[in-house]
C-alpha cells in the first residue's frame, strides 16, 4: 500500500505539473508547426507518397504509358512469380554479384584503411587518392574501361594471363555467364573500395589513441591491436558500410548496363550473356522504359522493395544481435 501510494505521489505531480507556457500553447504551436511544415509535407505527399501509391495501383494494370490503363488484377505478379524466370534470375544475379563483390571490397578497404592510416607512411595522401580515384569516375567510363580490358580477343587481361601462361586460350570474360558476373564484381570492387576505405579511415580516426597506448603498454602486438581494438571499435562504421553496400547492391544498374551495352562491348542482351548480369534494377528498367510495360515494371519495383526491406531488416537484426553479444 505504502509503495502504491508512494508511486502515486511521484506520478501525479509529474503529469499535472505541465503548465502551458506563454507562447507555447499546444493549439497555437501546432498551427505554426503545420504552417511551416506544410511545404515539406506537400512535397513529400506529391513527390513521394503519391508516386508510391500510384506505382502500387498501376502494378495491377496493363499500361504502356500511351493508352488507357487496363485493370488486370494480380496478373503482373502471377507472371512475375510463375512464368517469368527473369525475376528469380535477376534476384540470383544480384545476390551473387553482391556476394562476390561486397566481402572482397570490405576486406580490401579495411586493409587499405589500416595501412594508409599509418602515420609514418611515405606518400600516404597520394596512395589514398589513388585508391579513392576510381570512385569518382563516371560509370560510363568504367564500363568502357572494363569492356576494353576484358575483351576476349583484344583485351589486356587475356593478353597478360596468356603471357604469364596462366591460360592457354583467351577467356570470354564478357561472353560467359559466370565470367561475366566475375568481371562485373571486379569492376565494382575497383570502384567502391576507395569509398569504403575513406569511411573506415574516418571511423579509425575516431578511436582514441589512449586505447591503443593502453593496449601497447599491456603488451598487445599489431595483430592483436587490429583484431581486439580497431575492428570491434569500428563496428558502427562497418554496419553502416555493409547495410549501404547491400542496399546499393540491390540498386546495381549503371555498371552492368554500361559494361554490356557500351559501344566497345559489342552486342549483348541488356543483361549480358544469358542475362547473367541482369540485376533487379536493370530488369525493372528494361521492362518499364524499353518494353513500356509500366504495370509490370511497377510490380517488379514493389517486389524489389519487399526484397530490399527484408534483407535490410534481417541484416540489421543480425548485426544488432552481434552488438548485444
Amino acid at each position: 500500500m505504502k509503495e502504491k501510494s508512494a508511486r502515486n505521489i511521484i506520478i501525479t505531480p509529474a503529469t499535472n505539473s505541465r503548465k502551458p507556457r506563454r507562447g507555447n500553447k499546444p493549439g497555437k504551436r501546432n498551427r505554426y508547426a503545420i504552417f511551416f511544415l506544410a511545404p515539406y509535407i506537400a512535397g513529400v505527399l506529391v513527390f513521394w507518397i503519391l508516386p508510391i501509391l500510384f506505382t502500387f495501383a498501376i502494378s495491377f494494370t496493363k499500361w504502356d504509358g500511351f493508352n488507357a490503363m487496363q485493370f488486370i488484377g494480380i496478373e503482373n505478379y502471377k507472371h512475375l512469380f510463375l512464368e517469368d524466370g527473369r525475376f528469380f534470375k535477376s534476384l540470383f544475379n544480384t545476390v551473387v554479384i553482391m556476394g562476390l563483390s561486397i566481402p572482397v571490397t570490405l576486406v580490401l578497404a579495411l586493409i587499405f584503411a589500416y595501412i594508409l592510416s599509418g602515420k609514418a607512411l611515405y606518400a600516404k595522401r597520394f596512395l589514398q587518392l589513388g585508391v579513392f580515384l576510381p570512385y569518382i569516375m563516371t560509370p560510363v567510363a568504367v564500363g568502357i574501361i572494363f569492356a576494353l580490358l576484358f575483351d576476349q580477343h583484344y583485351g589486356f587481361v587475356n593478353r597478360i594471363l596468356m603471357y604469364l601462361h596462366i591460360i592457354q586460350s583467351p577467356l570470354p570474360w564478357l561472353g560467359n555467364e559466370w565470367l561475366a558476373r566475375i568481371t562485373l564484381a571486379i569492376a565494382l570492387i575497383w570502384m567502391y573500395c576507395g569509398y569504403q576505405m575513406i569511411l573506415l579511415m574516418s571511423g579509425m580516426s575516431m578511436i582514441s589513441e589512449d586505447v591503443y597506448d593502453a593496449a601497447r603498454i599491456d603488451g598487445a602486438n599489431t595483430r592483436q591491436v587490429f583484431f581486439r581494438i580497431t575492428l570491434p571499435l569500428l563496428k558502427g562504421v562497418l554496419v553502416f558500410v555493409v547495410i549501404t553496400s547491400l542496399i546499393g547492391g540491390f540498386q546495381l544498374f549503371d555498371e552492368p548496363l554500361l559494361l554490356f551495352n557500351s559501344s566497345l562491348s559489342g552486342k549483348f542482351p541488356i543483361g549480358g550473356p544469358d542475362n547473367a548480369a541482369l540485376t533487379m534494377s536493370l530488369f525493372f528498367y528494361n521492362e518499364s522504359y524499353t518494353n513500356f510495360n509500366f504495370g509490370y515494371g511497377a510490380a517488379i519495383s514493389y517486389m524489389m522493395f519487399v526484397v530490399i526491406a527484408l534483407i535490410s531488416f534481417v541484416s540489421m537484426k543480425i548485426m544488432d544481435r552481434g552488438d548485444r553479444l
Binding site: D151, H153, S263, L264, G266
Partner: peptide, 9 residues
C-alpha cells in the same frame, strides 16, 4: 572474324 559489331576494332 570475331570482332564485336560496330566496336572500335
Amino acid at each position: 572474324d570475331v570482332l564485336g559489331d560496330q566496336t572500335p576494332a
